[in-house]
Design a protein around this nucleic acid. Structure first.
Lengths: 164, 164
DNA sequence: GAAACTGTATCAGAAACTTAATTAAGTTAC
DNA sequence: GTAACTTAATTAAGTTTCTGATACAGTTTC
């Protein structure tokens, strides 16, 4: 294969659309809504966050996060702690039980993806392995636009109250 | 890089988790729910489908699909046509307006992914390009498990009434 | 052609979200 | 230092989208 093969954005977009829709349905356990699981994932991965931060990254209203965190707290999956640096704010921490849910779903995905990877050829597995660092970097560039030079600073604004 | 590098499933899973959560929030237009958009995407990509087929692939109840299709029909995004081969069934077709929504969101994703891809090195873009066929094949293997030999036949059952 | 099965629709209620209004803590201006 | 403003979180009320149960028409089986 040519080393500087042009990357077709159209093809990338299509493949990722399909892959995303498959990936998101992989775990069987679905007692929690998509947004709720995403919050747990964020907290487990990035550590404690304020409600406003969560509202921004999940693209729902602050009110929705408050209600969700209240529910998660009742279920013992997160805890509210005061923010020592700001008396108005609250820091949401994931509990061990909450982290266990994230890990459990990850294990399910790993099991299914492992089955699928077994069906690929060795060359295909190698190609995916070689692409992972670049895919991870795209995620980084998206979430921290200031890191890279020449990035559009306005593209990431947590947008105004999406109604659905 | 070694041509037969082992593919780390753990790393693949992590990268895809992060990528999925980024990708799903890319388009700005969010007048429609996630499930609704997924249905439009399926219809635009695979052609007309029965309500039960949609319920299976989207992992919501048939009741939810009926209500969603009724709403989409009122908005002119899909149409119901009788299934000539079965008097009980209904075939849901996407309209031009519905397809335009799918295309519009795809265009948004392409624009943003294109920006991100521009920030990568040529080698990174080449690595992603080289992995796309393999990623697409994983999606195929997932949705049509009978195609490949040795696949667990029970793994894909549209599961029992996911409650959230 | 009666019984069992399948595909869709309808209805009540639950869950998850929105907007708007409220409380409380921090910041700025004078 | 107090008044006016901003920011963080909550609460209340209403909307949308889902589940679960049921009904009913069309199909298959015998």
């Amino acid at each position: 294969m040519p080393e500087n093969a042009a990357l077709s954005i159209a093809r990338l977009t299509r493949v990722l659309e399909d892959f995303t829709r498959m990936h998101i349905r992989l775990p069987a356990e679905r007692r929690l809504s998509f947004t709720t699981l995403s919050v747990l994932h964020t907290l487990a991965g990035d550590g404690p966050k304020r409600l406003t931060e969560l509202a921004g990254s999940e693209q729902v209203t602050q009110s929705a996060i408050t209600q969700m965190v209240t529910k998660l707290e009742r279920e013992g999956l997160v805890e509210r702690h005061p923010d020592p640096s700001d008396g108005r704010a609250v820091l949401v921490h994931v509990t061990a039980a909450g982290a266990a849910i994230v890990d459990g779903r990850r294990a399910e995905r790993m099991a299914r993806l492992s089955e699928l990877a077994d069906l690929l050829t060795e060359a295909e597995r190698a190609a995916i392995a070689a692409a992972l660092p670049a895919l991870a970097r795209m995620v980084d560039l998206h979430s921290v636009p200031g890191t890279a030079p020449g990035t559009d600073p306005g593209a990431d604004t947590p947008r105004d109250s999406a109604r659905r």
